[in-house]
Nucleic acid binder design. Structure first.
Lengths: 106, 106
DNA sequence: ATTGATAGATACCGAATGGTATCATGTCAA
DNA sequence: TTGACATGATACCATTCGGTATCTATCAAT
């Protein structure tokens, strides 16, 4: 487990932060513009953006006196690639899943 | 954001739990067997397994006096599918990413 | 130079999290 | 029915986390 992987999953663990990523997918936004979409203070949103930045999920570029937050496809793709580990096991698992689910109900 | 999505990402947020999923990908294990792979008490491992179960990442079936933990491909695939939201935006983003990364360095 | 808008930084609070220790439960075997 | 073993469950502790309040810094425009 790399530290970057941990920072990435930590960034994705909060629903507000995942929502921010969906927002930024539709266009780049300043901190204030992101904050308009949530019922919390700008400082709280800034914290979320910092954690997203630490997890490599967004890039931040200074534009005049504002900071424009931009989606970072590389970081998001990197987190998504973690799931690839299971690709080799899924076919076999899915074949017996129904039975296991039934046992789990008991 | 669904509650199940949140429980899923919460389950994945901890490195021990992600490690447990990788372990279970190689074969089903009882709680005690999982605990052998970590330097923490069985109770702590049990907590992690409970959170993984709440996030639909594993199934638990009683076998005699033991409980066998099994990977749940459905839950893991469901979490992985969250990343599909960005598919439509990646091609465009990747085209301009290099420039944005450079600005981010400043 | 002063004002106002945008952002950074810090301290603080309540709740959730990761972990241990401890005790209760249940199941198999003798 | 005992005893041993794998698990369930609870209480407790230190740390992290999400959030607010507050103060400071910077830039732009007048």
């Amino acid at each position: 487990m790399s530290q970057q992987e941990q920072l990435g999953f930590r960034a994705l663990a909060d629903p507000t932060r995942r929502s921010i990523l969906h927002l930024l997918a539709q266009g780049d936004l300043t901190i204030a513009q992101v904050a308009e979409n949530f019922q919390m203070t700008r400082a709280a949103v800034k914290k979320h953006l910092s954690i997203l930045h630490e997890g490599d999920m967004i890039c931040v570029q200074a534009v005049g006196k504002t900071r424009v937050n931009t989606l970072n496809p590389n970081g998001i793709k990197n987190a998504a690639s973690w799931f690839g580990y299971f690709d080799a096991f899924w076919d076999e698992k899915l074949a017996t899943l129904k039975t296991e689910i039934e046992k789990d109900m008991q």
